[in-house]
Amino acid sequence: MPLHVPPAPAPALRSVLTALGSPTAVREAPTPSLRSASHPAVPELPLPLHVLHHTTPDGATATRLVGWRFLIRCGDRAVAAAETRPTPDGWTFSHFFEGPYVAATERALHQAESVTQPFQPRLLSVPGLYMLTLWLHGDCTADGAAGRPAATDLLVPLAPAPPGISADRPHRVADLLPILTHRVTPATTPLLGSPA
């Protein structure tokens, strides 16, 4: 079943196209693969990038949209990614980058296309664990820039994933989120004189 990729804001796409057309932006980016590409660079598969903001005591999650990420394809593969961010004046290009998350995102999207249930793909970052996941949201008609993970949504940790968490494997939000929350929540240190 094809994924229902949400449309990126037009200004976000324009800002990436402008950056790709700028020799200075491409030359100064830490992306040797993009600089040495022999095919034209094309932005595709825009994904809203959300950050896990916090989890409430009742287990509800709060996320916030921090940008849109585009895979940059040159020929038959993604060689880099471009990120945009919101500003008071609208969407603006932030930076190009490459690394393991580019290939991991492309691989996870390809695997998700074979799932029978339709999903809307998004990215969910868990900064406290230095972790990025492909978030497969069950409501394909939802605004990709809003919402929070539903218990039945799937999270696919992208490689490299933190120790003990299987990368490239879908996990239900209801199963994985409590583990992530437990790892991110700092342990409280008992006060001196209190029972341990």
Score class of each variant (00 low, 15 high):
V5S: 06
P6Y: 08
A10V: 07
P11V: 09
R14N: 09
R14H: 12
S15V: 07
G21E: 00
A29C: 01
A29T: 07
T31H: 08
L34F: 10
R35M: 08
R35K: 14
H39V: 05
V42A: 10
L47P: 00
L47M: 05
P48R: 10
P48V: 07
V51W: 04
V51F: 04
G59N: 04
W68R: 10
W68D: 07
F70Q: 01
R77Y: 13
T84A: 03
R85P: 01
P88R: 07
D89A: 13
W91E: 06
F96N: 02
F96M: 11
F97S: 09
F97H: 14
G99V: 14
P100Q: 12
P100Y: 11
Y101I: 14
A104W: 03
R107Q: 14
A108H: 05
H110G: 12
A112M: 01
A112K: 03
S114H: 12
F119M: 13
R122M: 06
S125L: 12
S125W: 03
L129T: 00
M131V: 07
H137R: 14
C140A: 06
A142C: 09
G144M: 01
P149C: 05
D153Y: 00
L154G: 08
P160I: 06
P162D: 05
G164P: 15
G164K: 03
S166P: 14
A167Q: 07
A167G: 02
D168W: 10
H171W: 02
L176I: 00
L177F: 09
T181N: 00
H182P: 12
R183L: 02
R183M: 03
P186Q: 04
A187V: 10
T189V: 11
P190L: 02
S194H: 14
S194M: 15
